Computed example of a mutant assay.
Amino acid sequence: SGMALDLNMRFSPDGKKLAVISQGRNVWLLDTATLSVLAKAGPFVDSTRTLAWSADGRELAVGAGLSGDGAITVFTVK
């Protein structure tokens, strides 16, 4: 349990949050000022390396998603 070294990362548009994919199966949301974990999602059905923030930083899209088959899962970020 904990983040692995195989990472893919994307900063939120305001730079206050960092989304990190670890081992292609889990997404961690970190506060960039403190590096504290705000949320974790996964494990996902399929491995993914795709992250995309909405322009306002309120949504985070994760490729592969929770249901597999190339799905995309969109999370609301508070």
Rank of each mutant, 00 (worst) to 15 (best):
F11S: 08
R58Q: 14
R49Y: 08
T34F: 03
A41V: 12
I21R: 00
D46F: 08
W28Q: 06
G42F: 10
A33E: 08
T34K: 09
I21V: 15
D14V: 04
P13T: 03
I21P: 01
V45E: 10
E59H: 12
K17R: 15
R25L: 13
S36A: 12
V27M: 03
L30R: 00
A55T: 15
K17F: 01
R25M: 09
A19H: 01
G57W: 01
V62G: 00
N26R: 14
V45K: 14
D31S: 14
A52T: 12
K17C: 06
L60P: 01
A39F: 09
G24Y: 13
R10G: 00
A41H: 15
V27Q: 01
P43K: 07
L35A: 12
A64F: 07
V20H: 00
G15D: 02
L35N: 13
W53A: 00
L18R: 10
L60F: 04
A61N: 05
E59T: 13
L60C: 04
E59M: 06
S12A: 12
F11W: 10
L38S: 08
G24L: 12
T48M: 09
S36H: 13
L18G: 09
W28P: 05
V27R: 00
G65W: 08
P13R: 05
Q23L: 09
K40I: 11
V37T: 14
M9C: 12
A33L: 04
A39P: 07
R49N: 13
K16F: 01
S36N: 14
M9L: 15
R10M: 06
R49W: 08
P43T: 07
Q23Y: 10
K40N: 13
Q23C: 06
A39Y: 04
K16I: 02
G57N: 03
L60M: 03
A39T: 10
T50Y: 10
F44C: 00
S47M: 11
G65I: 07
A52N: 11
L35R: 11
A19R: 05
S47Q: 13
L60Y: 02
Q23H: 13
M9T: 15
T34W: 02
A55Y: 07
K40L: 08
L30H: 06
E59R: 13
T50E: 12
A61V: 06
G63I: 08
R58I: 06
D56M: 10
L29V: 10
A19M: 03
L38I: 10
W28F: 15
R10I: 04
T34D: 09
A61L: 08
A41R: 15
G42I: 12
D14F: 02
S47R: 13
G15A: 06
Q23F: 09
D56V: 10
G57D: 03
L29T: 08
F44I: 12
S36L: 05
L60V: 04
S22R: 04
R58V: 05
S36R: 13
F44Y: 15
V62S: 01
G65D: 02
W28K: 03
D14W: 02
V62F: 03
T48A: 02
L51S: 04
L30C: 08
